[in-house]
Nucleic acid binder design. Structure first.
Lengths: 152, 152
DNA sequence: CAGTATCCGGTCTGATACTG
DNA sequence: CAGTATCAGACCGGATACTG
């Protein structure tokens, strides 16, 4: 077990986890990102899938654009009028592993009775895939072997 | 890029990511978990580190106990009075990889100018560690090679 | 479709204070 | 220390409606 500590080694102000939580750590934002990672891009698609009040959705999408997780683009199909679309930036796309890891946490701890509705596999080997810690060369490190290193 | 989709392959109701978000996806809860993962266990330590209003903290800790992420224990030191402590359960501890992954996302995308205040290494090889997808045997799979598999 | 406007009731937040 | 009590204000959520 982790030893008792009276203070975190990194204050919340300097902590990038805390910063990430401030940027994306609320329910609607996370749910919007979930849908975006599944390919949704349009206002009304988010709205009808999630049931987000339109006012709130409007604000959250604006914030996500401001923080650079989504980009608002106008998309034009021949013969139809242009539509705005919210597409994931590289920064937003980079959250995919985090959210897959959280999905798999949920698979185990929130719904262990049933088989998970989605799983993830390697396109090539077709083997199923989980998130883990690896070294630079891609060798797995068990999480008990992790050590926190502080910069001074 | 991900193709446009009008609906997610898994509805939010069945989605374990959405469930996880409902359980832990708000700022205070995530920040409390951050501190807990760094070893904090006492009411006033959480309060002074995070500045959470006491009323809110009280409620969040209760929820975290109810959902089985923290366990409330009475801890007695010889000659001192017993103190309540909130210690991570196995379920709570299992979030560590998720939050480390989010920390590393923050390191790259929120604060790329400076070196991160904390990093993670393999105790044995002392090499630094990142999160990645691996097969059952621990071979890394690049995230472009991921495929979503739906259960029918 | 893709929003903005408005209204209302509820919860959260923040501050302060009090108690075992 | 570890909470509960209280109170004012902000923000949120839900419904409805209106516009380009």
């Amino acid at each position: 077990m982790i030893p008792l500590s009276r203070k975190s080694p990194v204050s919340p102000e300097r902590c990038n986890l805390a910063r990430a939580v401030n940027e994306i750590g609320d329910r609607w934002t996370l749910l919007i990102l979930r849908s975006a990672l599944y390919g949704l891009r349009r206002f009304d698609d988010f709205q009808s899938e999630l049931g987000t009040p339109r006012t709130i959705l409007s604000g959250r999408l604006r914030s996500l654009v401001e923080t650079g997780l989504l980009e608002k683009k106008m998309y034009k199909v021949e013969g139809k009028r242009a539509r705005p679309e919210y597409v994931l930036t590289e920064k937003g796309e980079a959250l995919r592993p985090v959210l897959i890891a959280l999905t798999q946490w949920g698979d185990v701890w929130l719904d262990s009775d049933s088989l998970p509705p989605v799983s993830f596999t390697d396109m090539q080997s077709r083997q199923s895939v989980r998130t883990a810690f690896v070294t630079a060369e891609g060798r797995e490190v068990p999480s008990e072997n992790l050590r926190i290193v502080l910069r001074r």
